[in-house]
C-alpha cells in the first residue's frame, strides 16, 4: 500500500527543508522552556503532528502545564486549562447559553474548550458525564450548545493529565474513552543533571512560581501546524510497514495475560503516530523504527492486563516490551 506524497511540501528525495526546519524548530522551542523530558516533548509533538490527543500520567510538579503552554506559545495558539473536580459540569467545559439582561437576549458563552491547546488537568477527578462531554469534543472537534454546533479552531490538541498515586475519589476513564487518546505518555522525574539545569533555569530572576515561557518564540502559526499535520498524513507508508503495525496490534490482542487488547483503532493510531514520528525524524517515509518507537505510547492505554499479571506487578509497558521483542520486524 503505497500512498502518494503531499506534493506541495515534499520533494522526491526527502522532506522539504522548510518542513524539517519547522518540525525541528518546534521541538527546540519547547525545549527552551521545558528542560529535560526530551522523550515526553517528542511524544507530545508526535501527538500534535498526528492530530491526536495525549493523556499524560505523572505526579504533580513535573512540568505538564509548562509543556502545554510552551507548545501553545511556540505554535501561537490559544491555550486553556481546566482543573477537573468532582463538581465540574459539562457546561463548564463546553460553554452554555445565558440571558443577557442588557440586550434582552440569550447569549452563548463559550467554554474553555474553544482553544487550540487544552490542558485537562486531573481528568479522572470529574464524573463520567463531564469526562464524556470532553471526549465527545475531542472526537467530533465541535461543540453543541443548545442545539447549535460550533466548530473548534484547528489545530486542537487536548493534553489530559492523570495522577497515578492518588486514586481516592477519582473516576477512572473507561477503556472506550481511553481509546480516544492517541498516546498515553508517562512523565517521570527528571535525571539529576536535568533537574539541576531546570532548577537553575526556573529560579534565575523569577519572582514567585509563575511559569516562564518568555523564551519561547512563536515559530509557527496554527495554519502551518495544519500543513505539518497534512504532511505527516501524506507520508509514504510501505505495505510491509502497515503489516508490521497490524502484526504488533494483533499480537498484543492475543498475547497471554492480556484480558482486553487494542482494537483496529489501535492499528490506525499506531500508523498515524508512526507517520508523525517519521516526520519528526526528517523522513518522508515511515520505517519500522518509527512504528516501534511509538508503539508503547500508542498501545499502553489500550490494553487491560489479566488480574494475575496485575497482582504480580506487571504493567502494560512490560508486556509490550515482550511483545515487541517477539514480533518480527518487516522483511523486505
Amino acid at each position: 500500500m503505497d500512498e502518494e506524497t503531499n506534493g506541495t511540501d515534499q520533494t522526491a528525495g526527502g522532506l522539504s527543508q522548510e518542513i524539517q526546519d519547522q518540525v525541528q524548530g518546534l521541538e527546540r522551542e519547547v525545549q527552551r522552556a521545558v528542560i529535560g523530558q526530551i522523550r515526553v516533548i517528542r511524544e507530545v509533538i508526535v501527538g500534535l503532528l498526528a492530530a491526536g490527543h495525549v493523556l499524560v500520567e505523572g505526579v504533580p510538579g513535573l512540568g505538564k502545564t509548562l509543556l502545554v503552554r510552551a507548545l501553545a506559545a511556540a505554535v501561537g495558539g490559544h491555550f486553556s486549562r481546566v482543573q477537573f473536580t468532582p463538581d465540574l459540569m459539562p457546561s463548564d467545559i463546553s460553554g452554555h447559553v445565558m440571558f443577557d439582561m442588557k440586550r434582552d437576549a440569550f447569549r452563548v458563552r463559550k467554554g474553555p474548550v474553544f482553544c487550540n491547546f487544552l490542558l485537562a488537568d486531573e481528568i479522572n477527578r470529574a464524573p463520567a458525564k463531564t469526562q464524556s462531554a470532553l471526549l465527545e469534543v475531542m472526537q467530533e472537534q465541535q461543540v453543541t450548545i443548545e442545539g447549535n454546533s460550533y466548530p473548534l479552531q484547528l489545530p486542537f490538541l487536548v493534553l489530559a493529565t492523570q495522577n497515578p498515586i492518588e486514586q481516592e475519589g477519582t473516576y477512572p476513564l473507561p477503556q472506550a474513552q481511553l481509546d480516544r487518546f492517541l498516546l498515553k505518555v508517562f512523565i517521570d522525574y527528571p535525571a539529576q543533571e536535568e533537574e539541576q539545569a531546570l532548577v537553575q533555569h526556573v529560579t534565575n530572576g523569577a519572582v514567585g512560581d509563575q511559569l516562564d515561557i518568555s523564551q519561547v518564540q512563536t515559530l509557527l502559526q496554527p495554519d502551518q501546524v495544519l500543513n505539518l499535520q497534512r504532511a505527516a498524513a501524506g507520508l509514504r507508508v510501505d505495505e510491509q510497514i502497515v503489516a508490521y503495525a497490524v502484526r504488533i496490534v494483533r499480537t498484543a490482542r492475543d498475547w497471554s495475560g492480556v484480558e482486553v487488547g487494542p482494537g483496529p483503532r489501535g492499528s490506525i493510531s499506531l500508523l498515524r503516530a508512526a507517520r508523525a514520528h517519521a516526520l519528526l525524524a526528517g523522513n518522508n517515509f515511515v520505517t519500522p523504527d518509527d512504528v516501534k518507537g511509538v508503539a508503547t505510547a500508542v498501545l499502553r492505554h489500550r490494553m487491560k492486563l489479566a488480574t494475575d499479571l496485575e497482582i504480580e506487578g506487571y504493567r502494560p509497558d512490560d508486556v509490550l516490551a515482550d511483545i515487541l521483542v517477539n514480533v518480527d520486524a518487516p522483511r523486505v
Binding site: 523504527d289 516501534k292 515487541l324 521483542v325 518480527d328 520486524a329
Partner: peptide, 9 residues
C-alpha cells in the same frame, strides 16, 4: 541480531 530487530536497532 534477533528477528525483531529493526534497522535502527
Amino acid at each position: 541480531i534477533p528477528d525483531s530487530a529493526t534497522e535502527g536497532e
